[in-house]
Simulated assay, not measured.
Amino acid sequence: MTVSLKTLARNTLAGTLLAAVLPVGAATLAAADAQMSASKTIVERAAASSDHTTLVAAVKAAGLVETLSGSGPFTVFAPTNDAFGKLPDGTVDTLLKPENKAQLTKILTCHVVAAEAMSTAIAKLIADGGGSHPVETVGGCVFTAKSEGGKIMLEDGQGNTATVTVADLDQSNGVIHVIDTVLLPAS
């Protein structure tokens, strides 16, 4: 019997880390963790991180601030500025143009799950699935969650793999997992 991400999402301990270590680039958000309580929304948390300025600009350009500030619950796989920097030159600037709002919205909503899923729940789904589990996103993408060396990874529709570098940043309307690669829809 397959259990969905939504089913296990609430059955985890808030604030649990799945053997994640704090790499360079995630330290600012982690440091902000000590100063921010779970009373802040996902958007407020991301806006307080100097490692997520590109993500916040993209969320604003896509008109998703109000949605991601809503009651949720949401799980957001939040790419860092460095993750956006891995995209081909000019990609971010092109996506931020008003005429590309639909494409930007699609990419961003493919980083959002309509449930609060802590890393322990995701790890259990991966284990129960024999090493992988499909993750359905708000944007209609289906990514594959896997685990390697105690770290959760997501593979997108184009074969790119993002690693969760900071897990379980519990917020008032869901949870943030920081990732090191922008996930893209299947082409």
Rank of each mutant, 00 (worst) to 15 (best):
V56D: 02
Q158M: 02
F84V: 11
T28A: 08
L96R: 12
A34T: 08
S187D: 06
V56S: 06
A145M: 12
L104I: 09
F84I: 07
A121V: 02
V166T: 07
M36L: 15
A114C: 03
R45Y: 13
G174R: 06
A114F: 04
D51E: 12
D128E: 15
P79C: 13
K101A: 13
V182Q: 03
V166L: 09
R45M: 02
K86Y: 09
S50I: 00
S4H: 08
D180F: 04
V142D: 03
L5I: 07
V43K: 00
V43H: 00
D89Q: 06
T165M: 03
P73T: 04
A78L: 03
I152V: 15
V113G: 04
G174K: 12
L13M: 06
A20I: 04
F74M: 09
F143C: 00
R10T: 14
G85E: 10
P134C: 12
M118W: 07
A14K: 15
S71W: 01
E136P: 05
D93N: 13
A145I: 00
A186N: 10
A78F: 12
A115C: 11
C141S: 14
L18G: 14
V182N: 09
T91H: 06
G72Y: 10
T91S: 05
K86H: 06
H133G: 00
N100Q: 13
F143V: 00
H133P: 01
A78D: 07
H111S: 14
N160T: 08
S172W: 11
V59E: 02
V178E: 08
P88C: 11
K146I: 13
K151D: 12
L95F: 00
F84G: 12
D168P: 07
L64D: 08
L95S: 05
L169A: 06
L96Q: 01
I126P: 14
A114E: 14
Q103P: 07
P88Y: 01
T67N: 01
L154Y: 12
A61P: 08
A26Y: 04
H111W: 00
G90C: 11
K60R: 15
S4L: 08
V112Y: 05
A127R: 11
S187A: 08
P73S: 13
A14N: 09
L5F: 03
L184M: 15
V142L: 04
E66D: 15
D82L: 06
G85W: 01
T109F: 05
S49A: 12
D89K: 10
L18D: 14
S147K: 11
P73C: 04
S39V: 10
T137F: 04
S132Q: 15
L95C: 06
E116A: 13
I152G: 11
N173Y: 05
A34G: 15
I176A: 14
K106Q: 13
A78M: 12
D128P: 05
T120W: 02
V166G: 04
A34E: 12
A26S: 12
T28E: 09
G85F: 04
K6A: 10
I42G: 08
L29Y: 06
V76F: 06
A26T: 01
L18T: 12
T109D: 10
T163C: 04
A38T: 13
